Amino acid sequence: MSGPEHEALESGVEGSGVEELAPDAVGAWVRGVDYVAGWRQATGALAELADALAAAGLEEPGVRLRAGAEDDGAGVVRLELTVSAARRMAKLAEVAAPHFGRAS
């Protein structure tokens, strides 16, 4: 993805990480775009997702969450998984699918 990525909070599911905006991780700033608000929303969503993943047993080193902001300032949470963590998450999604009206 392109654009300013405020990698302000990088963490494993455990929730450790840096809790400040990292301006040197930005590709280009656009005047008038509120990247901080999007980043703050993303950090909140990241915390919720980290808690849910930990509750589901996916709190291994192979799970990495990063909060950032897109070109337009919208918050974004990026999820990176090792192969084994991706397979475990796929199983969790299969189990959860019927609860959300999705058939496998």
Score class of each variant (00 low, 15 high):
residue 49 L to M: 11
residue 21 L to D: 13
residue 44 G to Q: 09
residue 39 W to N: 00
residue 43 T to M: 03
residue 15 G to A: 08
residue 19 E to P: 00
residue 45 A to Q: 12
residue 50 A to D: 03
residue 35 Y to K: 00
residue 31 R to D: 13
residue 40 R to I: 05
residue 25 A to W: 09
residue 46 L to R: 09
residue 36 V to M: 04
residue 14 E to C: 09
residue 29 W to F: 12
residue 46 L to D: 05
residue 36 V to K: 09
residue 48 E to K: 09
residue 15 G to C: 08
residue 24 D to S: 15
residue 11 S to E: 04
residue 27 G to Q: 14
residue 13 V to E: 04
residue 50 A to P: 04
residue 11 S to G: 11
residue 47 A to V: 06
residue 11 S to T: 12
residue 31 R to I: 06
residue 12 G to V: 02
residue 25 A to L: 15
residue 29 W to L: 14
residue 47 A to D: 10
residue 19 E to L: 11
residue 31 R to Q: 13
residue 47 A to R: 12
residue 19 E to A: 14
residue 36 V to T: 10
residue 43 T to D: 04
residue 42 A to C: 02
residue 11 S to N: 02
residue 16 S to M: 10
residue 16 S to C: 08
residue 30 V to P: 00
residue 43 T to I: 05
residue 27 G to D: 15
residue 49 L to Y: 08
residue 30 V to T: 15
residue 32 G to S: 06
residue 20 E to T: 15
residue 43 T to Y: 05
residue 26 V to D: 02
residue 11 S to Y: 00
residue 36 V to D: 05
residue 43 T to E: 07
residue 33 V to I: 07
residue 9 L to F: 12
residue 40 R to L: 05
residue 39 W to C: 00
residue 9 L to S: 07
residue 9 L to N: 04
residue 41 Q to V: 07
residue 12 G to Q: 06
residue 41 Q to D: 11
residue 39 W to H: 06
residue 34 D to Y: 03
residue 18 V to T: 15
residue 19 E to N: 13
residue 31 R to N: 08
residue 30 V to K: 13
residue 22 A to I: 15
residue 41 Q to A: 12
residue 47 A to T: 11
residue 10 E to R: 15
residue 32 G to Q: 01
residue 31 R to L: 10
